[in-house]
């Protein structure tokens, strides 16, 4: 995997910020553009992509920057979504939960709580999982995710396999989240904030230690860094990001089901990260755009779209290293290492 630095040399910093500003302006204008070209459903698609990009970016932190190949990312995503679903259910029915009145449909309440609870789950299960490494780590994260999946399937009180319907989106003061474009801007805001946070993290001292661990854990241990707390912190932050994405998705889809914790969902997040290039900050976003875009476009072409998408993924992996960012480098004539 190529060594990609997200730090920007001062001379080109201005240009980079200019590009970011233009891209952001375009993204913010997307609902108007979508209306103008007669494709209003594009806004909903863009909302979904920006939510999944948050999830992919948080997996990227663990996977790309810290070398923790987690095959259970969907677990935290699903837990976040269930927090929203369960609190909504209680706010409608008014029933207390274990004696506490936990119902709420305020986004400012549900969202932080979703992030917190996903983080707690990631903390406990991560602390156990991190006792292993390599292939075993991939598999133990998968096992925990499957456990949670079956837990929610058996959770009859909250819909079990059929999931929970969130009839109305959580509300925000002064902002109408039921309006499609408005909710898109809300999600875009969180996505931008999350990417900004990621960018701060990976360039901080903490981020450098993570990078060091990814390259050689033994070396970091040798220079006196106790790696376990760093890895755990990284894993928990990654889980919190997934919880944020899950909570937003529960609001967007107005529906929560155990499918969100299924291993294929974890696989989809992994594909986004790898497609975009693991360990590159915006790779996760690019991966989400390309994967969801491809799925939607190909599904519109033929019902057998997977026959095209499958080989496309294989070719992509074989001929480019580091996914899309590898492809970009390849096209620029750069060396592929």
């Amino acid at each position: 995997m190529a060594d990609l630095k997200t730090t920007v040399a001062p001379a080109s910093a201005g240009r980079t910020y200019a590009i970011i500003a233009i891209v952001l302006a375009l993204l913010a204008a997307l609902p108007f553009i979508a209306d103008a070209i007669g494709q209003p459903a594009l806004t909903s698609l863009a909302t979904r992509i920006s939510i999944l990009a948050i999830g992919a970016a948080s997996l990227n932190l663990a996977l790309g920057y810290c070398g923790l190949v987690s095959f259970g990312h969907a677990a935290w995503y699903g837990v976040g979504a269930y927090v929203v679903g369960i609190m909504y259910r209680h706010s409608v029915s008014g029933d207390p939960f274990l004696g506490f009145s936990i119902g709420s449909d305020q986004l400012l309440v549900t969202l932080p709580l979703a992030i917190l609870i996903s983080g707690l789950f990631a903390l406990v299960l991560g602390a156990l999982s991190l006792r292993t490494s390599g292939v075993q780590f991939i598999m133990i994260t998968l096992a925990f995710a499957q456990m949670l999946f079956f837990f929610f399937v058996a959770l009859k009180a909250y819909g079990g396999d059929d999931g929970l319907i969130v009839r109305r989106r959580n509300v925000l003061p002064f902002i109408d989240t039921r309006d499609g474009p408005t909710f898109y801007w809300v999600c875009l805001f969180f996505a931008v904030a999350w990417f900004a946070l990621m960018s701060r993290i990976v360039t901080s001292r903490f981020g450098r230690v993570l990078e060091g661990i990814r390259q050689s854990e033994r070396r970091m241990a040798a220079i006196g860094v106790s790696t376990y707390p760093y890895k755990l912190a990284c894993f928990v932050i990654s889980g919190m990001g997934a919880g944020l994405a899950g909570a937003l998705m529960a609001n967007h889809a107005r529906f929560v089901s155990p499918d969100m914790l299924h291993w294929t969902q974890s696989g989809e997040f992994m594909i986004m990260v790898i497609l975009g290039g693991a360990g590159t900050l915006f790779g996760a976003a690019a991966g989400a755009v390309v994967l969801i875009g491809l799925e939607t476009q190909l599904a519109a072409l033929t019902e057998h779209w997977q026959v095209i998408l499958g080989p496309l993924l294989v070719l992509m992996i074989i001929f480019t290293r580091g996914g899309l960012s590898g492809l970009v480098r390849l096209l620029r004539g750069g060396r592929n290492e």
């Binding site: 007669g38 494709q39 209003p40 459903a41 909903s44 999931g163 889809a253 529906f255 499918d259």
Partner: peptide, 16 residues
């Protein structure tokens, strides 16, 4: 058989 996908399609049908 994915509820999320069904919603996307229905939304596209209704809006576009």
């Amino acid at each position: 058989l994915k509820p999320g996908q069904g919603k996307e399609i229905a939304e596209r049908f209704m809006k576009t």
